[in-house]
Amino acid sequence: MISRAKRVARSAAVAVSAAAAFTMMLPTGNAYAINHVECRGGENFLKIWSHSGGGRHSVDCYANRGRTDFGGWWVDRISTGNNDLIYYDANGDSVRINRWTDISFPNRPPKVNSIEIL
């Protein structure tokens, strides 16, 4: 007769083997996260010129797929580089801008809550 400890050990080994086999058979998902990166000439990053309500100005660059908070800043200009972009504004709208687009908002800049690189 097999002792209880051996049965428990065998059951655990079978469970671990099954979990490992199941993990190996499933395709891996896309792991991605948008990154705030240093703006450098010649790179094709998403580049956003913006200002806050308090008069501060900023130029920020982003790379990689994902979504991040933009803090409700007013966007003056967007250069998408090789990225398709959706920005989500304070009015609840989402606006898609295709790659290789450079757009300025001189009169009525959107107040952007978050951005997403597709």
Rank of each mutant, 00 (worst) to 15 (best):
G72H: 05
C61H: 04
P106L: 07
P27K: 06
A19F: 07
A33V: 09
S17G: 15
V59W: 04
N113P: 01
T80C: 01
I103Q: 14
K47W: 03
K111W: 06
I2Y: 00
R108N: 15
H57C: 05
N82Y: 10
S104W: 04
M24V: 11
S11E: 11
E43I: 02
V112F: 00
H51W: 05
P106C: 05
S104E: 10
G55S: 01
V95C: 00
R10C: 10
K6T: 11
A21R: 07
N44G: 07
D84Q: 10
D102P: 04
W49L: 04
H57K: 10
I97F: 05
A20G: 08
D76G: 12
H36G: 03
A13C: 12
A15S: 15
R77H: 13
C39N: 08
S17F: 14
S17M: 15
S58W: 08
N64C: 04
G29N: 13
A15Q: 13
F70N: 01
T80D: 02
L85W: 00
G92R: 04
G71Q: 14
K6C: 06
K6S: 09
R67C: 07
L85K: 00
R65V: 12
L85H: 00
T23Q: 07
D60E: 09
K6Q: 11
A20R: 07
I34K: 01
S79W: 07
Y62I: 13
A12M: 13
V59G: 00
T23A: 12
Y88N: 05
N98Q: 13
H51V: 05
D89S: 11
Y87G: 03
N98C: 10
K111T: 02
I97V: 14
G53S: 09
E43G: 04
M25Q: 11
R40V: 08
W73N: 14
S50K: 01
A9K: 14
S50W: 02
V95H: 04
I115H: 00
E43S: 10
A33T: 06
Y88R: 03
L46M: 03
G55R: 02
A63V: 09
R7N: 07
I103K: 15
G72C: 06
M24Y: 15
L26W: 07
N64R: 12
P106S: 10
T28K: 14
H51R: 15
L26N: 09
F22M: 12
G54W: 04
R77L: 06
S50H: 07
R108F: 10
R56Y: 06
T23I: 09
D60M: 08
F70Y: 14
V75W: 01
V8Q: 04
A5D: 13
E43R: 09
Y88F: 08
G54R: 11
P27N: 05
G92P: 09
S52Q: 02
R99I: 05
G81Y: 02
A63G: 06
G53R: 03
T68Y: 10
I48W: 01
D89Q: 08
S52F: 02
V95T: 05
G42I: 01
R4D: 05
H36L: 11
S58H: 03
I48T: 04
I34P: 00
R10A: 14
H51P: 01
T23F: 11
S50N: 08
A13V: 08
I115V: 13
F105Q: 06
M25D: 08
T101R: 13
N98F: 07
F70A: 03
A63W: 12
N44K: 09
